[in-house]
Computed example of a mutant assay.
Amino acid sequence: MIEKVNLNNILFLDIETVPQEISYLGMDEETKQLWENKTQYQRKDQVSPEDFYERAGIWAEFGKIITISVGYFVNKADIRNFRVTSFWGDEKKILNDFSNLLNTHFNGAQHLLCGHNVKEFDIPYIARRMIINGLALPSKLNLFGKKPWEVPHLDTLELWKFGDYKHFTSLKLLTKVLGVPSPKDDIDGSEVARVYYIENDIDRIVTYCEKDVIAVAQVFLRLRREDLLVEDEIIHI
């Protein structure tokens, strides 16, 4: 029962990713061929590998992480705070700083990671990029040999499925039906690469990522039938 989980033990997270290169032409010939092979079933016959490259950020082998945003509750007695912070810049530093956070503050048996579709996307992506960057996996991301019930992750998409594995609900839709303020009031995931490479506006992306983290926390509160966070309870650090 998620009502029994101590909110102070949960690290809410979200990542933003982009293609490794600004365009398809930035890849060497071998990588172009590997990209073509990797995406042949997703592209369909009428879409070229070059035109499809704008979606390369979805795959950890062809993309990179440009920001990780996290949030966590600090609840004491009747005072409730939700603190939000982000890591951005060089990808290896982002990953290393995030790993240090996990190892230092969220490494206990009681600690859980939570996000929307985090089990299928964010956490595997982070783990793969850590390996690619030569970093050791923190214990919360090292799932080798663990049984499904031993995995220390909560996923609001999975919680909303209630066992229906065919059902996918976007965070935007879930916030709408649950009466949570939408995090998609500026850009959405499809625009992140353009804002990063063309507009060179990482601050805008960080703000968008942090809004997603807050939205996930709000959804989690709604699933527990608790009051939503108000502006004064959200602290950006």
Rank of each mutant, 00 (worst) to 15 (best):
residue 2 I to H: 08
residue 5 V to S: 01
residue 7 L to R: 05
residue 8 N to Q: 05
residue 9 N to P: 01
residue 10 I to K: 05
residue 11 L to R: 01
residue 13 L to F: 04
residue 14 D to N: 07
residue 16 E to C: 03
residue 18 V to R: 02
residue 19 P to M: 05
residue 20 Q to S: 15
residue 21 E to D: 14
residue 21 E to F: 14
residue 26 G to R: 06
residue 28 D to S: 09
residue 31 T to A: 12
residue 32 K to H: 07
residue 33 Q to H: 11
residue 33 Q to W: 10
residue 33 Q to E: 12
residue 34 L to N: 08
residue 35 W to Y: 14
residue 40 Q to G: 10
residue 41 Y to H: 08
residue 43 R to K: 02
residue 44 K to W: 13
residue 46 Q to F: 14
residue 47 V to W: 02
residue 47 V to P: 00
residue 47 V to K: 04
residue 49 P to F: 06
residue 49 P to T: 05
residue 50 E to F: 12
residue 51 D to C: 12
residue 51 D to H: 12
residue 53 Y to K: 05
residue 53 Y to E: 06
residue 55 R to F: 13
residue 58 I to C: 10
residue 59 W to Y: 15
residue 60 A to K: 02
residue 61 E to C: 09
residue 62 F to Q: 00
residue 67 T to M: 10
residue 68 I to N: 01
residue 72 Y to E: 12
residue 72 Y to Q: 08
residue 75 N to A: 06
residue 76 K to E: 12
residue 78 D to G: 03
residue 88 W to Q: 08
residue 88 W to V: 04
residue 92 K to P: 06
residue 94 I to Y: 06
residue 95 L to E: 13
residue 99 S to Q: 11
residue 102 L to K: 03
residue 103 N to S: 10
residue 103 N to I: 07
residue 107 N to G: 02
residue 108 G to C: 01
residue 109 A to N: 09
residue 111 H to I: 05
residue 115 G to T: 00
residue 123 I to Q: 00
residue 127 A to F: 11
residue 132 I to G: 07
residue 134 G to V: 03
residue 136 A to G: 11
residue 137 L to M: 00
residue 138 P to H: 11
residue 139 S to P: 09
residue 143 L to N: 04
residue 144 F to Q: 11
residue 155 D to S: 10
residue 156 T to Q: 07
residue 156 T to D: 06
residue 158 E to D: 15
residue 159 L to I: 10
residue 162 F to Q: 13
residue 163 G to S: 11
residue 164 D to P: 02
residue 166 K to N: 15
residue 177 V to M: 14
residue 181 P to A: 00
residue 181 P to W: 03
residue 189 G to H: 01
residue 190 S to R: 02
residue 193 A to T: 06
residue 200 N to Q: 14
residue 203 D to T: 14
residue 204 R to N: 07
residue 205 I to Y: 01
residue 207 T to Q: 10
residue 208 Y to R: 01
residue 210 E to Q: 13
residue 213 V to Q: 00
residue 216 V to P: 00
residue 216 V to H: 02
residue 221 L to R: 07
residue 221 L to F: 08
residue 224 R to K: 08
residue 228 L to I: 04
residue 229 L to V: 15
residue 230 V to H: 10
residue 231 E to T: 08
residue 231 E to Y: 01
residue 234 I to P: 04
residue 236 H to D: 06
residue 237 I to P: 04
